[in-house]
Design a protein around this nucleic acid. Structure first.
Lengths: 258, 258
DNA sequence: CCAAAAGTGTTTCACTTACACCCATGA
DNA sequence: TCATGGGTGTAAGTGAAACACTTTTGG
């Protein structure tokens, strides 16, 4: 109770809005004269990438207080003229130079003391990028941006561990029900690569024959005429993901359980 | 583009914060001198109840502009000293006198123009209440609060239709995978009541024998010695939901698919 | 010719689905 | 005694899981 009161006091001092317009600007269900303080709104992104059979997360090293020097999820303030998703894309672009394929809202974190400065509510997003894309590698090749294995994270600023854990949890669940795994692989991939992706994310081994049966039965893969290059054994066939067909089935309310 | 610019301009005029502290209050990843305007943050609740084999939603009639007189989801502004969930509970208490059993975050809506006054981001929650509870019935017995069948809604203020639709969608999915249906029933209920709940929410009929087999196989129901009262036919046995067991299994990462 | 991964079917078991009649009770 | 919902079992079909060997290629 005391902590809440403390926070309220502090925030009120720091961010009370001008009062002259409060009868108009936000008093939807409150008395017209309610002069209320506003918290800040941010987005934070949990960006996953797959690197040589390891699932990794993109982190940035903070240059400012609080938590200066700590690693944190990329993110930042939402501007009043942009949607939440736009904010997430913009922040990722600014902080990491990253172009995002898949971006999905995860959860909104609203604990009162999650930011030591003042009240900050953060909308978390999950992003998936193809680490195989050399552009991505280059874009994130900076001193204060780095990829970390999901089982080998440094300690994180704010409540970012909690955000990360929820993102990982949801990624696992989602992967079982929707073919989002393709977002982590190169445009052309082998069935073994796909299986390894599932094994890494779900943290268990899968039967090769059953996996291939099911994944081919979904009928969302296009067999190319190309094969793997430069391997010291029989080269595997490359497949592409049939996005058109996927979107069509998705609209029809299909079930993609693997 | 022009609409966005317009919104930015308007909001900037309306809610720019005092600048003296901006180097401290929220410039986490922005230049210290960035004097940014803040949108408002609200919560909106989609409250479901089950009434005589119909799924209903609780709406309030707005007493203030904008959308004065329209029906809307209950909700309101988040205070800087309360969590999002606390805000949802408080608003429901204030607007409807309702004590909530189940409350879960649904999604955060951040379209720039969703509120005509200024930028308002809203965190939506789904709530389930036992309409059989007469306290609930009484609490919502007011001129500006009413229950509507989910297939018979009036037009709603803001983007509340969108919020409602997502909530209904998620309720259906969730009901398949977790035994949340009990939140809508009285503490003691018959298997037929439970089945009807599933049929109403999922909008399809279920086989009686198969349903009973599966639901009893989950082993989360406690058979009481009591039976239905005042029915003009054989009285059905009453069951209770075993919450303790449920929580235990849930912690162990169990799968409750029906 | 050896190492390394690619590729391929069948059987078993569990679970889901379909389906119809008798029972208990109150009016 | 009749109307109304309560309560019960079995058979068929479908989908998931377990399981091992041959093929291709490069070194």
């Amino acid at each position: 109770m005391s902590t809440i009161h403390q926070a309220a006091t502090r925030s009120t001092q720091l961010s009370r809005v001008h009062t002259s317009e409060t009868h108009e600007i936000g008093a939807r269900d409150l008395p017209y004269t309610y002069d209320y303080p506003r918290g800040a709104l941010t987005v934070d992104c949990v960006v996953f990438g797959l690197d040589d059979d390891e699932l990794e997360v993109l982190l940035i090293q903070r240059g400012l207080e609080p938590f200066k020097g700590s690693w944190a999820l990329p993110g930042g303030f939402v501007r009043v003229d942009e949607t939440l998703e736009d904010a997430a894309r913009r922040e990722l672009q600014e902080e990491t130079g990253l172009a995002i394929g898949y971006l999905e809202q995860l959860y909104t974190f609203g604990a009162v003391e999650r930011d030591p400065r003042e009240r900050v509510v953060s909308v978390a997003y999950t992003a998936l990028v193809k680490l195989s894309d050399h552009q991505v590698r280059a874009a994130t090749d900076a001193r204060d941006v780095a990829w970390f294995g999901v089982h080998d994270l440094p300690s994180l600023a704010f409540d970012h561990v909690e955000i990360f854990q929820l993102a990982l949890e949801r990624l696992k669940n989602k992967l079982r029900n929707e073919p989002i795994g393709f977002e982590l692989l190169p445009p052309k991939f082998t069935l073994t690569q796909l299986q390894h992706l599932y094994e890494v994310v779900l943290e268990r081994t899968l039967d090769k024959r059953n996996f291939r049966k099911r994944v081919l039965a979904m009928d969302l893969l296009i067999e190319t005429n190309e094969v793997q290059q430069d391997v010291a054994h029989r080269a595997a066939r490359l497949y592409r993901f049939d996005e058109r067909k996927y979107r069509k089935l998705q609209r029809a309310g299909f079930n993609f359980e693997l």
